[in-house]
């Protein structure tokens, strides 16, 4: 029963941020990431964090989901922190244990890098939490469309992404069914060493791939039957249109950028 599971981390909603044009959100996220890099000190980070948290609060999504995306990269954050802590050279020694010394500069740098990483992840998390995968695909297609002049296959990539999204639940369902069928024939997916387990996956993966190819063929035929001939001359029912709130969002991000630059200039922290 994988049917009810939503794909990705999208939380449906009707907040201002939810209603933003996906292109605005994509560009704003890129801008936000840039701003994180622009910031030279903690005051800037604090401002960015406040901005992101405020955005998240306005969407009604619980803050914990914002930080859930950190789990897979927690190790990298800690590693970066440790690396900077121990190997950053500095003059103000805080602690010395044999050859290992921790300096104030090191501590500052380590914290700086860790916070920067966390902010990067959290800002992009905001995008995926508030934008449906399909809107994201539409946004990407629209943003990359100008590149079609140089033969960049924007439409094809977007089409592939949306078909993949469409078939993930179907294939998960199918995997579940095949797994059950093979278990009924005595297959064992759970025990054994790594090699044995990898081998045990063959009876699952082969039918799954064969099925996926069969589906792909049928889908291609069905698309042909509905006059699909690539992106040329195609229109869309949902037109992406920038609205007032998009301008507002752009202004907010620009204001944030200005503030961070100002903080840099005054060397606050």
């Amino acid at each position: 029963m994988l049917k009810g599971v939503t794909i990705g981390q999208f939380f449906p909603g009707d907040s201002l941020i939810h209603r933003l044009d996906p292109r605005t959100k994509l560009l704003a996220t890129i801008a936000l990431i840039a701003i994180v890099f622009v910031s030279q000190g903690f005051a800037g980070f604090l401002l960015i964090a406040a901005f992101v948290l405020a955005c998240c609060a306005s969407t009604g999504i619980h803050l914990k989901f914002l930080f859930r995306g950190l789990k897979p990269i927690l190790f990298i954050v800690l590693f970066t922190f440790a690396l900077n802590l121990f190997f950053q050279s500095g003059t103000t020694v805080l602690l010395q244990l044999g050859p290992v010394k921790i300096t104030a500069e090191g501590l500052r740098m380590a914290s700086f890098m860790a916070v920067r990483l966390i902010l990067l992840v959290v800002s992009s998390q905001l995008l995926t939490l508030t934008t449906s995968p399909i809107a994201l695909t539409d946004g990407l297609e629209s943003l990359f469309r100008p590149l079609e002049v140089v033969k960049f296959p924007a439409h094809e990539i977007a089409m592939m992404m949306s078909i993949a999204l469409r078939f993930i639940p179907t294939l998960m369902d199918e995997a579940d069914k095949i797994m059950k069928a093979q278990k009924a024939r005595g297959a064992d997916f759970e025990t054994g060493n790594l090699l044995q387990r990898a081998k045990a996956m063959v009876p699952l993966l082969v039918p799954l791939f064969v099925g996926a190819f069969r589906r792909a063929e049928e889908l291609a035929l069905a698309m042909d039957a509905r006059c699909y001939r690539g992106g040329a001359g195609r229109t869309r029912m949902h037109q992406l249109r920038f609205k007032g709130i998009d301008a507002l969002a752009a202004l907010a991000v620009l204001a944030l950028l200005a503030a961070v630059i100002a903080l840099n200039a005054f060397h606050v922290w």
Partner: peptide, 16 residues
């Protein structure tokens, strides 16, 4: 069915 949303799928032919 091509699209991830019912009405989007319904629009597919006309979009083409």
């Amino acid at each position: 069915i091509v699209a991830t949303i019912v009405e989007e799928d319904c629009a597919f032919g006309l979009e083409n």
